[in-house]
Design a protein around this nucleic acid. Structure first.
Lengths: 252, 252
DNA sequence: ATTTCCTTGCGAAAATTTTTTTCACAATAT
DNA sequence: ATATTGTGAAAAAAATTTTCGCAAGGAAAT
C-alpha cells in the first residue's frame, strides 16, 4: 500500500540521510518516479523530510552535525558498507553485551541495528550518537583522545573501563588487510585498544569491505586467525576466501 | 566583498529560516542570481544551509523542527543559548586547557568557538563532534555510560582521566538554579563529575539562560559561591544579579 | 615602474536536469 | 453507478548547472 511505501521511504531516508530519486527508484522498481515524487511531497508536508534538488534528505540527518570532513569519508563505498552492516546487524542477539568499533562501517551498523535490549561499548562518537537514538540500547562510550579522521576515541585509560566489564562479542572493522600483515589501522592507540578488545571478547567478528584488501596501514592489531567471523561483500576474492574457511572462519 | 555577502546571506537565512532565490535577489539587487546561487552553493559546502528547490534554508531552522528527544531540547530557547555561547566563546584564550560539559548550550559554544590551539575535555558527544571539526583543537572525551537525553557521558571511571590531566577553566551549564538549591542537574553521576571538575579547575564559568532560574533538579553540583563568572542573557533578573556581583562573581 | 600572467569574481546564455502539470485509466470505496 | 484514490506517461515549466567570456586586482618577472 501507499502508506507502507511512504513509511519505508521515511525509514530509508533516516538511515541513509539523503537519497536521490534514482536511488529511490532502485529500491522501489515497481512504482514510477512520479509516485515516489508524490510520496516525498507528502513526507515533506508531514515535516519528516526535506526535498532537495534530485531527491530528499531526512530531517534527522540535518539535525546531526553538519558539514564535516567526516561525512565526506562516509561517502565512499557506501553501498558495500551498508550491505555489510546489514549482515552484521542480523548477527546480534538480544540480551548480549558487545563492543563495536568507531569506523564508518560501524556507524552504518549502528544505524541498521534494531532497537534491541543489548549493552554496547564503543569508541566511536558517531556510532554512539546513532545508538543513543535507540531506547533499549544500553550504551557506554570509551573515552580518550579524539581522532578526528574517524571520530573515534582511543586512550590507554580505556583499559580501566574494561577491567570491570565483559562482553561476548566484538564487531570491528579494519582499514587494511593483507595475508602477511593481517588487519591494520592508522593509529597506535587504536590498535592497542583493538588488541585489548580481542582479549576481552569471546568472539570477534570482522567487517571488511573488499576495497580494503591488499592495503597496509602502519599498525597491525589482528591476524587472520584472530577472528571468528568475516563479514564482507560479494567482491571478496575467492582465493582469499579459502584461506579463511580453511581456518574455520565463517564468511558471511 | 564576496565573503561579506555570503555571511549576510547566512545571517538572513538564519533569521528567516528559508528564502527563495527571488527573495534573495531582492535583498541583493546589485549582483546576479548566478552569483547568489554560487554563494548558496558555498554555504551548502560549509554545511550551514541546505539548498532546496527554489532557494535555500538554514540548517538551524531545520533543527528547530522536529523529532528526537535530544534535538527537541535543543530547539527551545535556541536564540538565548546561542547568544550565551557566543559570549562564552570570546572568553576562551589560545593555549589553554579547559573543560566543557555536555549540555546543549555547550554544544552551541562548541559551534561558536574559533579554531584555536586549545586542549578541551568534554563529556558531551555532540560537543565532541562539533569540536572535532576544528583542526587546532586538541580534544579528549570522557567516557562512560551515555545519557541519552543530553548525549553526554558520565562515569566514575572518568576520574581516572582527571588524575593525570589539568585544566585551568571549566565552562559548564546547569539544568536548574535557585539561590537555596544552587546549580542542579538531573543525573547523579553527572553531578559527581561536575563536582570533580570544580575541584580540578582553577576557575569555573557558568552558562545559564534565564529560563533555568527558579527550577530545581534532583542533584545539586555547585552553589552560587562556587563559580567565578556567570554568562547569561538579558532577561536575567536584576535582583538576582546583585547576589552574584556582591560575591565578586562577574556577570556577562 | 611597467608589463605580463594568473587568479578571482562575476554575468549571460546555452545545455541539462528536475519538477510540476495535465490527462488518462484502473481499482476501490460509497 | 458514481466518486475517490492511486498511479503512470508525457508535455510543459522551472530551476540548476555548465560553459564561455570579461574585467579587476595581485604577484611575479622584466
Amino acid at each position: 500500500m501507499k502508506r507502507d511505501r511512504i513509511e519505508e521511504i521515511a525509514e530509508l531516508l533516516d538511515k541513509r540521510g539523503k537519497l536521490t530519486l534514482e536511488q529511490l527508484d532502485d529500491y522501489f522498481p515497481h512504482v514510477s518516479q512520479m509516485t515516489l515524487r508524490r510520496d516525498l511531497f507528502q513526507l515533506e508536508q508531514e515535516g519528516r523530510i526535506i526535498r532537495v534538488r534530485g531527491g530528499a534528505m531526512s530531517v534527522k540527518e540535518v539535525q546531526k552535525v553538519s558539514g564535516e570532513p567526516y561525512t565526506k569519508k562516509t561517502a565512499i563505498h557506501t553501498d558495500e558498507k551498508i550491505k555489510i552492516a546489514q549482515k552484521a546487524a542480523r548477527l546480534i542477539d538480544e540480551n548480549t553485551s558487545l563492543f563495536i568499533d568507531g569506523g564508518t562501517t560501524a556507524m552504518y551498523l549502528a544505524k541498521e541495528l534494531p532497537d534491541l535490549n543489548v549493552h554496547i561499548f564503543t569508541n566511536g562518537l558517531a556510532v554512539a550518537i546513532e545508538l543513543a537514538q535507540k531506547k533499549n540500547v544500553n550504551l557506554t562510550v570509551l573515552g580518550g583522545q579524539v581522532l578526528k579522521e574517524n571520530l573515534s576515541t582511543a586512550s590507554p585509560v580505556a583499559k580501566s573501563y574494561f577491567d570491570n566489564t565483559n562482553f561476548e562479542l566484538a564487531i570491528i572493522s579494519a582499514s587494511a588487510f593483507t595475508l602477511s600483515n593481517g588487519f591494520s589501522c592508522g593509529s597506535q592507540v587504536e590498535a592497542d585498544l583493538l588488541k585489548l578488545t580481542r582479549k576481552k571478547a569471546r568472539a570477534m567478528y570482522m567487517m571488511l569491505d573488499s576495497s580494503k584488501i591488499g592495503k597496509i596501514m602502519p599498525y597491525t592489531f589482528a591476524r587472520l586467525e584472530d577472528i571468528d567471523v568475516l563479514i564482507t561483500d560479494d567482491n571478496f576474492p575467492a582465493d582469499l576466501k579459502e584461506k579463511f574457511t580453511s581456518r574455520n572462519i565463517v564468511i558471511m
